[in-house]
Design a protein around this nucleic acid. Structure first.
Length: 270
DNA sequence: GCCGTCACCTGTGGGC
DNA sequence: TGCCCACAGGTGACGG
């Protein structure tokens, strides 16, 4: 599942392949991927050249000369760069035809991903990006403490709330709680300022290590597209046994999200 | 305003 | 072996 580190890996990798290349034509095979009118999307981007790729939280922003669009990969979205001769697969939903007989293709098994035209100059001040909180790298301990202090939700749920802090998804929320040795069901509002500072530092550390992992393992495109390999380092998410105490990992539902933790190592600590 | 639930989707895996 | 169903999960919409 693409979270901030994977999206950052995709951004860095794509930049090496598509910057300063023209979008000669766009084919849309599944309209619902496009927020708004697909024909407008097509016409706006046809003939444009991609000049940069930005990222805010889990959103990618493709900046062209006169237009821009955002892409959210949601659960299984991925980009491939392939020869234009390559047959269109069942899960290919948008194709950007570029020069040198190559395509940038968007694939998404579950069709959850979305793309949308946005204002290239003010996109950070407009929906959906203006609803996002700061990334863990940007927020201060004091600001995070204030946001969590007024939040009656379990910590795990608060970590998933993109308006509090953006970029963390279900897998990293589980891992961050594990590194904190804290029960994910602990009320976020009960954390002391010291613990919130630890939370911020752990979040940054986990995300940075995952970005490094993705960055060092991705050298080129393969048949699976562009994706990070951070999941090899998971301690609790989807695991059976705690790597510290070797007790069984427990799975519970927190606000309808699969939540993995070690009941022996992770307690309600404030 | 806050919080909980559901829909959007399809592949996978478990149970029968 | 084949069928059915629950589950996975990010986000937005909707209702209480």
């Amino acid at each position: 599942m693409p979270e901030l580190p994977e999206v950052e890996t995709v951004r860095r990798t794509l930049k090496n392949f598509i910057i300063n290349r023209p979008l000669l034509d766009i084919d849309i095979y599944y309209d619902r991927i496009i927020q708004g009118d697909p024909v407008t999307f097509q016409k706006a981007l046809q003939g444009e050249t991609i000049i940069d790729i930005d990222r805010v939280g889990k959103y990618l922003i493709f900046l062209c000369q006169h237009h821009a669009f955002i892409s959210h990969l949601r659960m299984e979205g991925k980009f491939h760069i392939v020869s234009s001769d390559e047959p269109i697969s069942k899960h290919t939903h948008v194709v950007f035809h570029m020069d040198h007989h190559e395509d940038l293709r968007y694939l998404d098994t579950r069709k959850f991903g979305r793309m949308e035209l946005i204002d290239p100059l003010h996109y950070k001040e407009l929906p959906p990006l203006n609803k996002l909180g700061p990334e863990p790298f940007e927020i201060t301990t004091e600001a995070l403490y204030q946001r969590l202090h007024h939040c009656s939700l379990p910590l795990k749920t608060a970590l998933l709330d993109q308006s509090i802090m953006c970029g963390i998804g279900n897998i990293y929320a589980n891992e961050i709680c594990f590194y904190m040795r804290i029960d994910p069901r602990t009320r976020a509002s009960r954390l002391s300022q010291k613990r919130v500072d630890e939370l911020r530092r752990v979040s940054i550390d986990v995300l940075n290590r995952a970005i490094e992992q993705g960055g060092t393992t991705i050298h080129s495109f393969d048949a699976n597209g562009i994706h990070g390999l951070f999941q090899v380092e998971l301690n609790v998410h989807g695991q059976k046994e705690c790597p510290i105490c070797h007790q069984p990992i427990k799975k519970v539902m927190v606000q309808n999200r699969g939540t993995y933790f070690c009941p022996h190592c992770q307690k309600k600590r404030y």
